[in-house]
Amino acid sequence: MPELIAPIAGNVWKILVAVGDKVELDDELVILEALKMETPIYCDDAGTVTEIKVKEGDAVNEDDVLIVID
């Protein structure tokens, strides 16, 4: 089951998908905020979002799982 992991540490600024959404390769799923800059995180696989592990405003570390995709 592919997971979307945080490539950098930061705060979750916006989550652009919901559980059950179908996502494509390169879709923007989450926007992280680090050093006052918004960094969009793109989807690596196509599939369906089965779980969102974070909520907006959460602080995440590098390598934390953000979203699980089936």
Binding site: A9, L35, Y42
Partner: peptide, 8 residues
């Protein structure tokens, strides 16, 4: 490269 996260 949109998967390039150079910030840190």
């Amino acid at each position: 490269n949109r998967r390039n996260y150079l910030l840190m």
